[in-house]
Each structure stands twice: as C-alpha cells, then as structure tokens.
Simulated assay, not measured.
Amino acid sequence: MATSTATRKYGRGIVDAWHTGVGIGIAGVIPMILFSVVVGGKDLFPLFGLIPYAVLWGLLYVAATRLNPVERLATDPRTGVPLGIAYGFLVWWGPQVGKPVGEYVSVEAAVQAAVFGAVVGLVYAYSSTRAGVDAASER
C-alpha cells in the first residue's frame, strides 16, 4: 500500500519532534543531576528518577514551540535561552503549587531550574533537527 508524500512528511515531523523533545529533556537534566551530586552532595542513582520527568518536559517544550509566536522565539538562540529559563521554572516549580514554599524554593532549586531551561532553550535553538525542519519548510 503506497503512502502519500504528505503523510510521510507529517509522520517524519512527528518522529523529529519526538527525537528533539527526548534529546533536549535528557540534555537539560544532565546538568541538574551533576549539580545535585557535586554541589548538593546527593547520591547519584536516585536522581536518575528525574529523567522521565525531564523527557516529558522536553516533549512539552517541543509541542509548545509548534505555536508560531513561540516558535520564532525558541529557534533564535538570543531569545531561546531566556524562553527556556522561564520554561524551566514553569515546569519544575509550577507543579509544586499548593505545597509550602520552603519545601521546593531554594537557591539550589532555582539554579537547577534555570540551568535546565537554559540548556533546553539553547539545545532546541541549535538543534540540527529543527534547522532541517526550517530548511524543508522554506522550499
């Protein structure tokens, strides 16, 4: 059964978005884990539990950048990094609403959220997959 070019293009876009989301999520969580181990003195292996959340946050970032105004900001490194930092605070501190503030707000947590967001924003902006999609859409 033959598939149309449009269907293949759409399917390829989903796969590219999936790969980009997983990649930026993992890239963003690695500095968080290293910071917790080196500066925070925490055990390494329990921190691997952050990886599924980071992958989810990476996939949501890619989904959010499919909106045209956000996409323009996210694909430019000058605006992508600040956008990523804001996103890092939103996803790591946003789900904590309702808990006592002292339970999740600290300098260490702020640095981790900022580093996660900066890495996500920077990697997404420079993503070769993203550049390929942009180049293909201009043809």
Rank of each mutant, 00 (worst) to 15 (best):
L59M: 04
G41H: 02
L73C: 11
H19G: 15
P46C: 04
G28E: 05
T79F: 04
E103R: 14
T7R: 15
G132F: 00
P77D: 04
V97D: 13
G117S: 10
D43N: 07
V111A: 06
P95K: 01
E103F: 10
G84A: 03
L67F: 11
R66L: 10
T65M: 08
G98I: 03
F35P: 10
Y61K: 07
V119T: 06
L67I: 01
L122S: 14
L34K: 04
G117K: 08
V15A: 10
G28N: 07
I26G: 09
A114P: 13
Y126N: 15
G98H: 06
T65A: 11
K99Q: 15
T3H: 14
A86N: 08
L44Q: 10
V38K: 11
L50M: 14
A118V: 03
L56K: 09
D43I: 00
G28K: 05
I14P: 08
L34T: 05
G98P: 01
Y104L: 03
V22M: 11
T5Q: 15
Y104Q: 05
K99F: 10
G84S: 09
G25P: 01
L44M: 12
L34M: 01
T65H: 04
Q96P: 12
S106I: 07
L50Y: 10
Q112S: 14
P77M: 00
G80W: 07
L73F: 07
A63Y: 09
M32Y: 09
L47H: 09
A110M: 01
G40H: 08
V101G: 10
Y124T: 05
G121P: 07
G13P: 02
G80Q: 06
G40I: 02
A86I: 04
V55R: 08
R139T: 14
V81N: 05
P69Q: 00
E71R: 13
V133C: 14
P95E: 09
G102T: 00
A118M: 05
L122E: 15
V105T: 09
P31D: 07
S36I: 00
V15E: 12
W93T: 03
G102M: 09
L34E: 06
A27W: 03
A135Q: 11
D134T: 11
V62E: 06
Y61D: 05
W92S: 12
T3L: 15
E108P: 13
V101N: 12
S128M: 12
V119H: 05
Y10S: 14
A2K: 15
V107N: 03
G49K: 11
Y126A: 14
A64N: 04
F89R: 08
V105W: 11
R78I: 13
R66C: 04
V120E: 02
A113T: 06
L122P: 14
V107Y: 03
H19Y: 12
T3A: 10
V105P: 04
G21V: 06
